[in-house]
Design a protein around this nucleic acid. Structure first.
Lengths: 338, 338
DNA sequence: TTGCCAATTGATAGCGCTATCATCACGGCG
DNA sequence: CGCCGTGATGATAGCGCTATCAATTGGCAA
């Protein structure tokens, strides 16, 4: 069932059918009604592949995220999907599994679809990918992080500033033995930026920086307990810990309960991402809320605007973040010795 | 940069370049090396849209899930993605947001890509969708639930049997005042099947069926507490509750802690899906583990096999489920009065 | 009446690729 | 010495659609 079949059935040219369907204003009302009726009866659906080839735009937007296994990328995906779908763009889903080399090949393959735009999470790409992206003439959208030199549109927040803000928060609260606990530092470059801001700020305050890091173990609640135990072994007088995400923080909290460590009186715990679990534990966990869904929505809206000939004024948008203070860091400053 | 450009550059025909890239055995070794070199130098990438049009197969597989907002569909998506990506198929992501009418339009639009296959979650479709799906000559994969009359491939488990198994489990444990608590019954047809099995089994045992249901409120931890309160108001002597998912069960558990109701001694709680939260609360929550990732992987593998000319022996695969018993239902049967 | 413009419809030429068949060179064989 | 099979390569014809320009009509101003 092709356009030609419909055209023959109605007794008009193929262009008239094409117009009746996609440029309604260009076809007279009675003829258009006749064509739509025939389309409906024959069950014709436009071949988007042929349409894409002929028009040069397939209304396809690949979205590349690190992984589907970690829940933080889902709200972003959802936000982007909701806006793009509304405007008739299809999403091609891809994951790098945190492998930079995979990103290279992935992006080249994705470009083979001659997409209308391209979403990438993260702003750190290989030299090869960068040169490919710069050569290609479609809007590139980098999200989740802020870039010093964005390729195209860039929506996110500064992970470095998160590290700074958390260190400052702990300092204001009176904590002086402060640690970072995380994992995947080798592949999650954004966590490295948070660490940098955190460490630098502690240094600026003249405080020691303690940390415990794993390089490749995936995030999990169980790992949080393990990291906490190792940290306490290494630094028993620790007062406050900033975890790389909420699962780890929750795991550490549960471990504290098992070991009889009172939170926040004896140990303050802060998570990252503000996932639902942070607000469900007892005590609840202070965390850094990141605008993941908004990043997806706003970035997608900017892309759509751009594609529709309304290039957004700003190419880079900093959506910020917010420390959501909960019970796990509520110890009065006085009660902490310094 | 097109195939023709590469061909001209090397001084061969376009077909030779096409073959060198995609049918290596058909081109002599030295010529092929020369062509690959030119491809690399010129940065040529195949236009998959043109390729798809010419060959009639674009290696595209749309995956339709109800929503990205609920985490249970993500492991399925991940499982399917991992297998499809490995075999060179691209996923087009789509969600229905639980609207049957949206599914109709969505599927027709997706069919416009002339995809190689189509993933649908759920087995309940509108009459219109059914007729479209039957007319189309691509493998349809229905997942998450089992169908009485699968259109094509069907991988999942029986939600009715889940209801039966949970009712039997509660009965064996000695509970006699048993309830179901859930939400979204109007749009989540699979939960309705669980309810049916649950209710029927209680009836077979001669036990009363209690329930509290909301029709459209989304799942959340907070809602779990609300449902529990309503249920207790309506039926104060309730002994065991089967929740529509783990978030609700966890919320109910937290509410019990707030109200001083001992779990499992005074009230047994069972969740559904066995998400990580069920194993993280104190006490841990008994739940029904469903093979979501496996469903995605196995279904995708069956689709790939089918597309590669190795049609799987069975069209329907029941991956079952398992009640993971944890602390929230561990009260000794004796301690419950009957 | 003539001419011109706008509105509507149609004919044609690709988009970049692959399927298919033709061509050609070469070597073995009768 | 011609015939034929085989392997390698090329020429050509679409795949189904849309961009573009041409053609036709009718209304209206000059």
């Amino acid at each position: 069932m092709t356009l030609g079949d419909v055209a023959r059935h109605v007794g008009v040219g193929t262009m008239t059918v094409s117009r009746a369907l996609h440029r309604p204003a260009m076809v007279s009302e009675p003829l258009r009604a006749k064509i739509l009726k025939a389309v409906d009866e024959l069950g014709y659906v436009r071949n988007r592949v042929a349409s894409g080839l002929a028009s040069g735009t397939a209304r396809l937007v690949p979205v590349v995220i690190p992984t589907l296994l970690h829940p933080v990328y889902i709200p972003f995906l959802e936000g982007a999907y909701s806006v793009l779908a509304q405007h008739g763009y299809q999403i091609i889903l891809s994951t790098t599994e945190y492998q930079v080399s995979a990103e290279d090949r992935l992006i080249e393959a994705l470009l083979g679809w001659f997409p209308d735009g391209l979403f990438l999470s993260g702003v750190d790409h290989s030299a090869r990918t960068m040169s490919v992206l710069k050569r290609v003439h479609i809007p590139i959208v980098e999200v989740m992080d802020l870039s010093d030199s964005p390729i195209g549109i860039n929506v996110g927040f500064s992970h470095y500033k998160v590290g700074v803000a958390v260190a400052e928060y702990f300092y204001q609260k009176g904590y002086r033995q402060i640690a970072y606990a995380g994992t995947m530092t080798e592949i999650d470059l954004r966590s490295v930026k948070r660490i940098a801001g955190f460490q630098q700020t502690l240094k600026d305050y003249g405080l020691p920086y303690h940390y415990i890091q794993r390089s490749n173990e995936p995030f999990s609640i169980a790992l949080g307990g393990g990291l906490l135990n190792e940290l306490l072994l290494q630094q028993p007088d620790i007062q406050a810990v900033f975890f790389a995400n909420d699962d780890l923080a929750a795991g550490a909290l549960f471990e504290c309960q098992r070991r009889g460590i009172r939170v926040p009186e004896q140990l303050a715990i802060m998570g990252f991402n503000d996932q639902e679990i942070a607000n469900s534990t007892i005590p609840t966990i202070t965390s850094v809320r990141t605008p993941r869904r908004e990043i997806g929505q706003i970035a997608a809206q900017m892309l759509v605007d751009h594609l529709q000939g309304r290039p957004p004024a700003e190419r880079q948008v900093d959506l910020g973040f917010k420390i959501i203070e909960r019970a796990s860091t509520q110890a009065a400053a006085r009660s902490i010795s310094d």
